[in-house]
Design a protein around this nucleic acid. Structure first.
Lengths: 349, 349
DNA sequence: CTGAAAGCGCTTACAG
DNA sequence: CTGAAAGCGCTTACAG
């Protein structure tokens, strides 16, 4: 057995052979037809014990690794699902991806990651490039895309799930939460605690339109109740802890009348709280601070951060499961899922 | 033109046709041979202006998206690079991946993500599954793998780069830093500042063996100098901010003699600092705290955290560039790169 | 349960 | 610069 390993009849040089061990090599060694090897691998029960054992042995001896391209091309089926998100810098997307990965892996699927950096043209390119891999489905962040992206996805003939935000219209399926509603709830909370001059602090809100929707939700509510007003701050930087840190200092000077700040996300809000700590600015005495997402650290800072908890892993897992249900054929229970949100009222407001 | 769009001669039902628009469809519409369409797309300069224009038009009209599987199978080339990391929960890997993605995207390559959750068996499975996609190269975290993983990777016949830690032996290429050295440097720093009873706080150190190496580096140095001693804490949880938060409370009670804590990472160290803030524990007066990684937040907490800055994006970018250099054929300048590290001595120690 | 033939949608290698 | 033929390594669809 050991000797013959390297001695197998060498076929007369196939011009295009790529060199790797193929199904045919395994078949020759196990003295069966290639199709039988294919069956033994993909559907073991359809092959007799004898052959299955012989084939398994041949596979191991030759160190055969099936060529997925060939398999996918022949069957028009792949187990690689593209997931398109704006960026990984934002922890939120990372957690969503973890949820997706968990669900996909449980069914033997893999994740092909694409990031758009909030650029819709890049998103369109990515979508068409990834569709070239004939994926069984597509997951994409957001409900706003270029018209051509929507067309391509609709014509792709595969299930598509749009995640993060929940809305009335979607290409196919949708899992997320209402960011407008999140803004409304935070406005209600701040009003209830007596704040009347509220600043909203965001970064690149044109790109990060979900954050903008939170502002819109807050603004609408404040306008309607008429007992409070707001100011919008939109920084051109990327919105991390440093931005919150810097923004707090600047805003306290430029807009000393404000009594509360609603940050676009927890990272920024935490940055502001850390700044307040260093500079001994009383929170919420001098100014109240709120965030969005419910990151673990929001509960650890002093004072603990009031925030809205978004169920990120749940979004990822739910979206992946809906996609898989469609791929496998059972069909999801629902095509649109609002995962909801939860306001955590803590000491910072 | 508009009419003919939907009227193209329907070929007599090919039994196995997958339905999508193919190269042949485009060729028929542009009245050229398929190979010419292939050339127009992959190597535009090799086709005359007339044909190129006609083909481009046909592509747009039909909404043709090339089937990457077929292309990859025929050419034995793909532009999808598997990147295998333990997890995404750890920000560090996310930043590495961002660096990788930047470099890959610049050359038209995509990233296929795999996570092992620190499980070497799962790593082995992942590697062989991903190799089935005939990737042009592989990136994998760590220098420790199962023997069969190493064998598979060595036999794959493609460039492999192992990242995160720098060591004497690698499968093919290596980019990282010496974690043992990081531990040594932190030990030197703590000794220099007068600390003599030092605790190292880690989580699942058997899995996170790079953190363990940092401990080993510190322990060795302390043993050699003989003027200080250490205690090792290894928690079974995952090592985030909450663990640091809890650990500080527990350790101050169980080991009141300690005067410094070196945490396995910044997340944990920050958790400890936040806990100290809430409970009014003086840092570094009562106990000094140090971390590892140099996350942005380490500079924002009060007191600012002493840590070791690891060049994460650089690791990702460098590794991707080395891989690409090998794939494209130019070959990297070096096969082993120690990206180094930098100790940031701040107020927490 | 097993197999011979044809095909998936591209590209390589030869010709002209 | 353009093309006809063969092949990449699998699986589908038919037979037996």
């Amino acid at each position: 057995m050991d000797k013959s390993r390297t001695e197998g009849a060498v076929p007369e040089a196939k011009r295009l052979s790529h060199g790797a061990v193929t199904l045919a090599d395994v078949a020759a060694r196990a003295k069966v037809a290639p199709i039988t090897v294919s069956r033994a691998l993909n559907n073991p029960d359809s092959v007799s014990d004898t052959l299955r054992t012989r084939i398994r042995a041949a596979v191991d001896e030759l160190g055969y690794v099936p060529n997925r391209m060939a398999g996918a091309l022949a069957s028009a089926k792949t187990k690689v699902v593209p997931v398109i998100v704006p960026s990984l810098s934002n922890v939120v997307f990372v957690e969503v991806i973890e949820g997706v990965q968990d669900a996909l892996a449980a069914h033997g699927y893999q994740l092909l990651l694409g990031t758009t950096d909030y650029n819709l043209d890049r998103e369109a390119e990515l979508v068409s490039a990834l569709l070239g891999w004939a994926p069984p489905g597509v997951m994409i962040a957001g409900l706003r895309h270029l018209p051509r992206t929507v067309t391509i996805l609709k014509n792709a003939g595969v299930p598509v799930v749009e995640i993060m935000e929940y809305g009335a219209r979607c290409i196919d399926m949708n899992v997320g939460l209402s960011h407008f509603r999140a803004g409304t709830e935070m406005a209600e909370h701040l009003l209830a605690r007596g704040y009347r001059k509220i600043g909203f602090v965001g970064a690149r809100l044109r790109d990060d339109y979900r954050a903008r929707q939170r502002y819109d939700g807050m603004h609408r509510h404040l306008s309607e109740t008429k007992i409070a007003s707001d100011v919008l701050f939109d920084y051109p930087d990327s919105g991390g802890q440093h931005l919150g840190w810097n923004a707090l200092g600047e805003i306290l000077k430029s807009n000393p009348e404000l009594d509360a700040l609603f940050f676009a996300n927890d990272e920024m809000a935490v940055g502001a709280i850390l700044r307040a700590q260093r500079d001994n600015i009383a929170i919420p005495g001098r100014i109240a601070i709120a965030g969005f997402n419910g990151l673990p650290i929001s509960a650890l800072v002093t004072p603990a951060l009031t925030t809205i908890i978004s169920p990120r892993k749940l979004i990822g897992r739910t979206a992946a499961e809906m996609l898989l249900a469609r791929i496998i054929g059972t069909g999801p229970a629902s095509r649109r899922v609002n995962v909801g949100l939860e306001l955590a009222a803590r000491q910072s407001t």
